[in-house]
């Protein structure tokens, strides 16, 4: 079975067949030993063991913690890759980059805004953040209000 593991901008082509593992064309002797049912594994190489914690995330994402570092990767099989469509973020969409409290909304629907203008202020964990207009345009939607608690990814302002 062929797996494409994407970590940041790097891609690893890994072939796993029975006990044989080939990484980018190079055979390695590694296997995974389950230590418990909560995601703790031993990655066993020829001469070395490494403790790893592995957890599945949504949409093919996998989180690995290894030696104090956390790696979030996407794993793909050729079939899965074909199915997936790419969709870029819309230019005038301003979403909450973190869950938090909407401290102020500075624009109304129909208002014209300049690029870089502060549209709203969001607060999360002792920190305030100004949400600025990514483009110049007209505000078409403001589905939030002062004092609202928003989730990460919630639409704050739509500019067209």
């Amino acid at each position: 079975m062929n797996y494409t593991v994407k970590i940041g901008k790097n891609e690893y082509q890994i072939k796993v067949h029975h006990n044989r593992v080939v990484v980018d064309g190079e055979p390695v002797s590694s296997r995974l030993i389950r230590l418990n049912n909560n995601g703790l594994y031993l990655l066993r190489h020829d001469d070395r063991d490494v403790e790893v914690h592995i957890q599945e995330k949504e949409a093919g994402g996998v989180e690995v913690v290894i030696a104090g570092q956390r790696v979030v990767a996407h794993v793909d099989t050729p079939q899965r890759r074909e199915r997936r469509k790419k969709e870029g973020p819309q230019a005038g969409t301003v979403v909450a980059p973190m869950p938090g409290l909407v401290v102020s909304v500075n624009v109304k629907e129909g208002e014209d805004v300049q690029q870089g203008q502060v549209l709203a202020v969001l607060e999360s964990m002792k920190m305030q953040m100004q949400m600025r207009a990514p483009i110049e345009g007209r505000v078409t939607r403001v589905p939030t209000r002062n004092g609202a608690q928003v989730e990460k990814g919630a639409l704050l302002v739509q500019i067209e």
Binding site: Y3, L32, I54, V62, I66, A67, V71, A73, V75
Partner: peptide, 24 residues
């Protein structure tokens, strides 16, 4: 540096592939 060290990242990739294989 945001990326993990290359050796560690490669190791993580192997672990993930083996994990995905196990799940499958």
């Amino acid at each position: 540096v945001l990326d993990p060290s290359p050796d560690l990242e490669r190791e993580a990739a192997i672990a993930i592939a083996l994990f995905a294989h196990n799940q499958r």
